[in-house]
Design a binder for these strands. Structure first.
Lengths: 342, 342
DNA sequence: GGAGAAGATGGTAGCGCTACCAAATTGACG
DNA sequence: CGTCAATTTGGTAGCGCTACCATCTTCTCC
């Protein structure tokens, strides 16, 4: 003689409460909520009324258990505070907020091992889709992605060999464009300053190097890098190092805008004329770059749009019409500003 | 004659697979995983071996359904890209990454209605705890929080009447401290520039006003605000407006560091001497403020620590020993820098 | 008008896990 | 040595939902 377990859920209405109130079967309520077109107009209305009256909200856990699919997008980024990824996440979030899908965020801290751990963890939830930053997954991570059994979108980069789909742009081309711009502007001893040399930064550096070599200007002493996390203050310090190493430096292509800003401030402090004595180019084009004095040339990237696009592609794939274009290159724009206008 | 539903989960091992392999009951496996101290040393080892061999990962959905409690922290912030909240989220994330709890992030976009909607949605998951930014919830939101049946931590502010627990600091005191510092430094026509006037900014403004009135310096024309989202470029524009309105302006307390940076850049551009002609104080003390030229005085707030503390309090409450101090004031620090050193 | 297709609805049996109780084992103690 | 409590283990019955049929109505078409 087992009495029912007195509503563990704390008395929240369930699908059967709704069904009883609407005078239909539970399964019909379920359908009315998920595939309204398969339920008659009339029942749909009755059910909706019952839902509203009871304040019914489906339990996503029960749903996930029964359907073996959680309404969750797993999102893996290397940093939560880096504005660049925050913008991507915002794009993902905004595109998903009108859908039933939730976001499961993972911060890899730029670590391949942590990425593996998180993918393993996310897999246990059977997410509806996975969005991961970058294309340099470890072999184990790649295997996990391939066997996830859901759409996978790699974002922020493009490359020849997507796990599934890809939205991003070429960091190598971005680095090259930035460097070529400096060369065209007449700078010659152009340094590269890069912090936190993740794969994307490596490719920007490769682009820099390609441009410099093509112009016969490359000199390894011009390159200053560190694995330390990027920050404005680090930019300042690295610029001082770079200048100490190569006093004839007349331009810098920075890994990102934080570094560029640090360089700019140090120039002010040391009374180095920008763009006359030193030209500066950043990467990502944060809002403040066009406001800075002098305004700073940068490579505008479309982070928010990348997030939106990734979601759109994943949703299409979930709906069964996988986009034929599996690799989307959203490109970048060189924003010419005062910092290189000499 | 119903054949079993051929493993919807795609062949992932379940708790009974582990139980069979370890030669114990399923419930013992469950216990060994959740309350190891209640299972004998020997069985624990056997079970662990079976788990490792099969690569078993518990299904969080089934777990949540059976226990009527999801291992999820609901986190509500008004913005994902504002570095301030990103830091709080990072603190929360880092403190939770070693625990079984996941994070369910919600972006309210500074909207009370959206907050209500998200709380409603989060409630359907029966989260283990809720962390929400601010103390100005709508009555409906407050009711939802009170009836959530889990620990609730309001963060970023302090106030007299927590729903449950609270970690933050006084924005009013921060605003007052910033303004008093400007007054002590000899500035008199001190403006307030504030974008996105959310409740926290309102309180900073109230602190500014209190300090100005106490010194007999308050003048409503000194206050420039807008509901528009804050940005560096907006800071620049607002400063120009403020200066046009009050040409004798000799100092500004900015809503936040983005605005302060915009003011600083505009001063450079317009050749206004900082700190000689204009003194500038920001709020939050982002890394770049100490690197800027001149470095910018700001109110250092402890965002990361707030996130960590909120999680610590929630975890303690979940474990049954609710902290006796329900309101934690982490305070702030006035960082005096060149922008007010005249 | 009847056969068959198409559409609408419902019943049953789980999804993988844990709450609740029961049972078995051990130890303590008068 | 028997009683009682504490400790360890397991069985049963769901949690709230949906997949998979089965059933019942229409509707179509020859």
């Amino acid at each position: 003689m087992t009495r029912p377990r007195s509503r563990r859920g704390g008395g929240r209405p369930t699908i059967s409460d709704v069904a009883r109130k609407a005078g239909v079967g539970a399964i019909t309520v379920s359908r009315a909520l998920r595939e309204p077109e398969r339920v008659s107009e009339e029942l749909r209305r009755q059910i909706q009324a019952a839902v509203d009256e009871l304040g019914y909200v489906p339990d996503p856990n029960a749903r996930a258990l029964a359907s073996a699919r959680a309404e969750v997008f797993g999102v893996l980024v290397p940093s939560l505070t880096n504005n660049v990824f925050a913008e991507v996440v915002r794009g993902i979030y905004d595109s998903l907020s009108a859908s039933p899908f939730r976001i499961q965020l993972g911060n890899t801290h730029y670590s391949g091992l942590e990425e593996e751990r998180l993918l393993q963890l996310f897999g246990s939830q059977r997410p509806a889709a996975l969005i991961v930053a970058g294309i340099d997954q470890t072999p184990a991570s790649r295997k996990l992605l391939e066997s996830a059994g859901c759409p996978v979108v790699q974002v922020m980069e493009t490359g020849p060999d997507p796990v599934d789909m890809m939205v991003g742009f070429s960091h190598l081309d971005g680095g090259r464009a930035a460097t070529e711009h400096l060369i065209e502007a007449g700078y010659r001893r152009i340094g590269f300053i890069g912090a936190r040399m993740d794969p994307r930064s490596q490719r920007r550096l490769a682009g820099y190097r390609a441009a410099m070599e093509a112009a016969g200007l490359f000199d390894p002493r011009l390159v200053t890098t560190t694995p330390v996390l990027s920050s404005v203050s680090l930019g300042r310090e690295m610029f001082r190092d770079a200048l100490a190493k190569v006093p004839t430096l007349d331009g810098v292509f920075c890994n990102n805008d934080d570094i560029a800003l640090g360089v700019l401030f140090e120039c002010h402090r040391a009374s180095i004329a920008v763009p006359k004595t030193i030209g500066i180019v950043g990467f990502n084009d944060l809002d403040m770059m066009q406001v800075a004095f002098p305004s700073v040339t940068s490579i505008r990237t479309h982070r928010y749009e990348i997030g939106r696009r990734a979601v759109a592609m994943a949703l299409a794939a979930i709906a069964g019409n996988r986009p034929e274009q599996r690799i989307v290159d959203l490109g970048f724009e060189l924003k010419r500003r005062e910092s290189t206008a000499r």
